[in-house]
Structure formats: C-alpha cells, structure tokens
C-alpha cells in the first residue's frame, strides 16, 4: 500500500522540474505566411461572391428587358355598355335601312 502511495506521489510530481518548451525556428515566418494565405483566400471568395451577385443582377435585367411588357387593352366604359346593349352607331343605321 505504501508502495502505491509513493508511486502516486512520484507520478503526480512527474511534471516538476520540466524545462521550458520552445517553438520550432521560423515560427513567425510560418505565421505570416499562413496569414497571407488566409487573406488571399478571403479576397478570392469575396471576388467570387461579388461576381456571382453581378451575374444574378445582369440575368435579371436582361430577362426584364427582353420580355415585352403586357399591354393592357384600354376599355372605354361607354363603348363597352353600347356594345353590350347593341347601341353602336352602325347598328342603329342598319336598323333604319331595314325599316
């Protein structure tokens, strides 16, 4: 039992007197290289996003301009009512001739 307690104590203290760890040489160079790569990638994805947005706007514009707008026929309400009740001028003229 005492042996086990000694073992535990030794294991718990196994980090003692450790020496400071150092990064591998040229850490800063590798760091700045990574930052540049990150920047380039961000720029590229930004450019692609802008290009896609411009393309979508262009497609919309082209489709808007190429499809002719539907022309709504304008109806005169008086003419509509006249034709509905057969009151057009030519009708009256024809009736008079027949008589």
């Amino acid at each position: 039992m005492k042996d086990i307690e000694k073992e535990i104590e030794k294991t718990l203290n196994s980090f003692d007197e450790n020496k400071a760890v150092k990064v591998k040489p040229y850490f800063y160079t590798r760091l700045t290289a990574r930052m540049e790569v990150n920047n380039t990638q961000t720029n590229i994805s930004l450019k692609w996003s802008i290009a896609a947005l411009v393309l979508i706007v262009l497609v919309n514009l082209v489709s808007l301009l190429s499809i002719p707008a539907e022309t709504e026929e304008e109806f005169d309400p008086i003419e509509m009512m006249a034709s509905e009740y057969s009151l057009t001028n030519s009708d009256i003229y024809n009736t008079m001739i027949e008589e």
Partner: peptide, 16 residues
Amino acid sequence: DHPGIKLENKERASVL
C-alpha cells in the same frame, strides 16, 4: 512524449 519533461519522468508523465 512531452519535449519539456525530464527523461527519467517521461513514463510517469505519460501516465499522468
């Protein structure tokens, strides 16, 4: 194998 641990403590440190 932590590079900062003393050689004689490496096995125990790994357990820890």
